[in-house]
């Protein structure tokens, strides 16, 4: 057996101290991703710091925003009545992911940090710059049907697999972290990275930093929202592409809008230019079609994922139509 230390501190400060003791140490939350990676031989931690005893399990309604503790499970978030009513996009996105069993175990912080599902990353006999920097990218000229069309580099074309993250980026969430240095808050858009020359880094989280909670500013998007996930089977499959749409419509005019896509980039893909285009426009199919085209600017496909160049705008268009209530 790979020997490792296992500790289960009760205090956040203890967890942060403990993680610093070994260079090869990992926090353990729901374990639905981490344990798989250990079993597949992708990581072999010398120390596991189980954070499940930390007091980070509450959903708090603070004026101006909602605060979700890192250990709140995906099911608890998705089924929370306040969230269902005020942040329905988040509920929808979480429920589109994985399976009930997994969502019961998966935590907020763990979901944020789940690794890519690129098959070359998972097979230790294959090249993968994310797993072994410098070993090459197996997917670049390999089976890249699930891979990125935005923001990739020739070092890595993987996608962030999370559904929850797509909603969180649309909702301008903030990630609170504590660490050996001062606690800090990372805007969601800056939390995940593009691969560039360092695909081994998924996020801007620093070594030894612990996610403590995620904040979502109070938003007016309660009615005209939709999370559309296109996948190979009706559940329990990662997104081919997904689209998160939140609209604030008054008198058929789009007052405010947030858009993001999943399954298209190394990070949850926010569509700022498209949002700008839509703001102030009247709801119409034609406008939405134009928006979907704007969203695709800069897209680039590989051998097996060319379909995403069509599926992504189609999915966004459909999500806009559904969210706005526009009929076919």
């Amino acid at each position: 057996m790979n020997q490792f230390q296992y500790v289960r501190p009760a205090e956040t400060s203890g967890a942060i101290k403990s993680i610093a003791l070994d260079t090869n140490a990992h926090f353990l939350a729901g374990g639905t991703n981490l344990i798989d990676l250990m079993k597949m031989g992708i990581i072999a931690p010398e120390r596991l710091v189980d954070i499940n005893n930390l007091p980070l399990k509450t959903i708090e309604n603070i004026p101006g925003h909602l605060r979700i503790g890192t250990l709140v499970t995906n099911t608890q978030v998705a089924e929370n009545q306040f969230i269902k009513e005020n942040f329905p996009l988040l509920s929808m996105a979480i429920n589109a992911g994985a399976s009930p069993q997994l969502r019961n175990m998966a935590t907020t912080g763990g979901n944020l940090l789940q690794r890519t599902r690129c098959p070359y990353f998972f097979d230790t006999t294959m090249p993968c710059n994310k797993r072994v920097p410098g070993s090459g990218c197996g997917a670049l000229e390999g089976y890249n049907r699930m891979h990125a069309i935005f923001g990739a580099s020739d070092k890595c074309i993987a996608v962030n697999p999370s559904d929850m993250n797509v909603a969180l980026t649309a909702l301008n969430a903030l990630v609170h972290v504590s660490g050996p240095k001062a606690a800090r808050t990372i805007p969601f858009a800056d939390f995940h990275r593009l691969p560039g020359d360092h695909p081994e880094l998924d996020t801007t989280l620093q070594k030894g930093e612990l996610i403590t909670s995620v904040d979502i500013p109070t938003v007016p998007f309660t009615k005209n929202v939709y999370y559309l996930k296109v996948r190979d089977r009706s559940s329990y499959a990662f997104a081919l592409v997904s689209a998160a749409v939140a609209l604030n419509i008054e008198n058929n005019t789009i007052q405010d809008v947030r858009l993001a896509m999943g399954g298209v980039a190394h990070k949850p893909w926010r569509l700022i230019a498209t949002e700008t285009f839509l703001k102030g426009k009247t709801v119409s199919e034609e406008t939405f079609k134009q928006a979907a085209q704007i969203a695709m600017e800069g897209a680039k496909a590989y051998e097996h994922n060319k379909f995403k160049l069509k599926l992504a705008p189609n999915a966004l268009l459909q999500a806009l139509k559904t969210a706005s209530g526009l009929k076919a």
């Binding site: 390999g142 089976y143 089977r233 559940s235 499959a237």
Partner: peptide
């Protein structure tokens, strides 16, 4: 199979899709 290596790239039940109940 990735023919460069002769290995399956989806040899597990997450990536090889059998229909689920909802299908």
């Amino acid at each position: 199979i990735d023919d460069r290596f002769g290995r399956l790239v989806n040899g597990n039940l997450a990536d090889y899709h059998v229909p689920v109940n909802a299908d």
